[in-house]
Write a protein that binds this DNA or RNA. Sequence first.
RNA 1: GCCCGGGUGGUGGAACUGGUAGACACGCAGGACUUAAAAUCCUGUCGCCCGAAACGGCGGUGCGGGUUCGAUUCCCGCCCCGGGCACCA
Length: 976
Amino acid sequence: MEYKFSEIEEQIKKFWSDKNIYRVGDAESGKPKYYVLDMFPYPSGAGLHVGHPLGYIASDIYSRYKRMKGFNVLHPMGYDSFGLPAEQYAIQTGQHPAITTEQNIKRFREQYDKMGFCFDWTREVKTSDAEFYKWTQWIFIQLFNSWYNNSTDKAENISSLEKIFTTEGNANVKAAHAEVKIFSADEWKKFSESEQQEILMQYRLAFLSEAYVNWCPALGTVLANDEVKDGVSERGGYPVERKLMKQWMLRITAYAERLLSGLNDLQWSESIKEAQRNWIGRSEGASAKFQIADSKLQIEVFTTRPDTIFGVTFLTLAPEHELINQITPDSHKKEVEEYVLYAKNRSERERMTEVKKITGVFTGAYAIHPFTGKQIPVWIGEYVLAGYGTGAVMGVPGHDSRDYGFAKHFNLEIIEVVSGGDISKEAFEGEGKNINSTFLDGLKTVDAKKKVIDEIEKNKIGERKINFKLRDAVFGRQRYWGEPIPIYYDEQNIPRVVDENDLPIRLPEVDKYLPTETGEPPLANAKNWKYKNKFEFEKTTMPGWAGSSWYLFRYMDPHNKNAFAGKDKLDYWKQVDFYIGGSEHATGHLMYFRFWTKFLKDLGLIDIEEPAKRLVNQGMIQGVSAKVFKNNFNFKTAPQSIAYKRFASKYITDSATIENIVDVFLCKDFVVNDSQKSSLPFLLSDINLPVDFADFTKYQFDIKAFYESGDNRAKNVLFIFIGGIFLNGKFFFDAGVNNYSFGFTAIPEKMSKSKYNVVNPDDIIEKYGADCFRMYEMFLGPVEMSKPWDTKGIDGVSRFLRKLWKLFYSDDGKWLVTNEAATNDELKILHKTIKKVEDDIEKLSYNTSVSAFMICVNELTDLKCHKAEVLKDLLLILSPFAPFTTEFLWQEMKQGGSIVTTNFPKVREELLVENSFEYPIAINGKTKTKITFALDKEISTIEKEVLDMEILKKYFEGRAPKKIIVVKGKMINVVV
RNA sequence: GCCCGGGUGGUGGAACUGGUAGACACGCAGGACUUAAAAUCCUGUCGCCCGAAACGGCGGUGCGGGUUCGAUUCCCGCCCCGGGCACCA
């Protein structure tokens, strides 16, 4: 019988689905639980490429393994199905995003099924399902109804805060909040309803706030910090500007400390933890208030180096600082206003690219140094950020490089207050001993910090303070395809949450997915969409990360109508034991879902502090692009194109054909060739050609096939190679040349449709089978590592599977398996492999387990072993990797049940005990020969025997060996 | 600039906690089978040197140094590649 993988896969797929083999029960299973989760995919229109399954295969193997080890394994899959691409498509075509999304999901599902993943599809969830987003909205309501109590260090219901306000005002409340004035209980009671709500809003965890946001005019929406890369939108690459807008926000900063300290106990990669630590950006220091001369105003600064306070020679304010107007004397108004205007008009992007440019202006005001009483000038500089600290810094040019640059540029005084550097050359930012600092003189930096903060607090100048870089998260999007925010505006225009019983607030139908003419979000297009038929709903929707911030809990109880998940289910499944996904989510999703988890815990809804114990980041499988060169000017208008046309006219006389040329592609070798290069205008960039026509072994691109495929990019395009050209299906050669070769360069880069380098797993599965595909992706290297996709080695895995098959069937199709008892050698091979594979799976070192299987099958083949006793265990340990083939053979062996639900075999350690070892014998650390000794042999006897060995004599060269080291079971080293 | 990874044959990659560097696979070369091809199987394959061969010699894990009986592994300095952050006071 031949190994026909496609037939086997079909048959086994049916077998599994008939038996509902992947259905997962809950606590009643009586087994310990294990939760394996893949990061939520966005169902894109392009389907899966070979890069996506890397993580899925890894988690699938782990899930199957854990199941065979006696765990009740939850391994679900679903879709993060709200998102931009479907909406963009809707804007272009008018097609409802729900329809596109549904089609894409169907495609994804087909692909998942082909790969044999053990997902329990009865637990599938989709964020765009009203049954799902009902609970996303519900959690938002809880956030709105909560405040963060710093005294108890948890979120509490807003009613407890109101109670405090009515009894004692807000002076002693320790809470995470925005700027609020201090009021007494009496004052609180006298506030109007709208004033009270305004104040409460400053405390809520979901709140409406005026804030500088990243506004992307091209997308017509606001982006979160992590959605902006290099001043442009991460998706689409459109410019982003800073804009003051009223926005729904989440007070993630309340959780900064817990998000930071929680990292320590997580089994996550160091790089992700580090990225989160940087993102949270905790710094310890002090705040200090500087009195403005001849004024009642004070400027508060934050510093991490309060020990350098005697080195302050100026203050710098951010251009957005609110006191600028009040402190600037008339004499300086004009210059200051001009500068502020200039700074405001500078986009984030400009400011970032011109980091080294020093700009600023003197306000004309002076501040009084709190310790020396000296007057110091107050400046404005754009190097100070409005959003961090207090938006003002104390300028210590001697010990801060930015202050140093600023002082040099504007000729301000520089004082050395910490010894150890040379401040005539550069700022000294290291630690040392204080000088020129009165009561701090002689103190080491650590002690000086402590002392000065004590003084600052004693004199009520300021206080010890901890600052975070982490910003509150913007939660509203001017978009259609997202969860409606469950807020309405009452008669007084006070924002209120809708009643929980009215959830879900369904996404209304609109006839246009674009913002309205007045600039309102798309939801404003909805007709008759009012809460209780009279109140205006909030028109923005939630961002892409809302649903994914809590989805892990929904899988535990996906159909629950009364809660986001039932208490019993939450108690049983607790949290994700093993989470796998891309590292690009380091500061986005992975931060938000930790935040929501902590919040739900504070409400007493769940019992865990962290959503995922262990996190593995799978590497990216890059596509290998076929790059050729292309002119980078407009071919129709640029004068350079004439040179190309002249070149083409060497071969083609018909001028109309030449005039029609719209572009030119050059083969790699042509560009590398100097004499050719000099005859052409050298303005080149590279462009990708579809990999389907590229031969990566010879680096040859088939232009003719490309042209004949009907691709528009090949039409009227002049292809130049060495010795000839290709135009519209025809080759033209130099005299004497008749072999064409269109060379390209192979570059690994991210796999993407736009780069024409996508490899579809369906094609690979069709050619080699799903098991082979799964094993090959694992065989490529460690899961965490990125690597270019390359089919070069896949034949090795394919050969392995056929070799395995041959242990069961002869070439002419006879069943070979016998019930003979296995020999010791055979059992040893088997159990060595079981042990190795078990260890490797735990470590996620799948590439080495695949080699172990290969070694095992090779050795059994050499021994002509066809014994059931050995083969059935081999099938079991291989089944997480190659589920189809192993299940098929399992059934052929009449073992009963399904291999999926059978237990993993136990290693028989006693078979692996060696009683002798072949020692490598090294002279001065270099291995020279080998000798076998019994393992229980006395070391002193070994030493003696080795030193007497005839073969070693020549290395001693007459010298007596100085020393001999014997490490039992490892090696022997003789020092001469 | 700062913070994380990483650098091993022609290629993907192995090597437990400091103990035989290059497992396994691809590719390549030679051979067997075949009319032929595919498939399959066998042999070799880090480099250099001697040789008929060797369980011969020398070198070798990005570079330079160090610790050690022994270093791909630990320490110091440097170079290169990938990723993240970036005027964060």
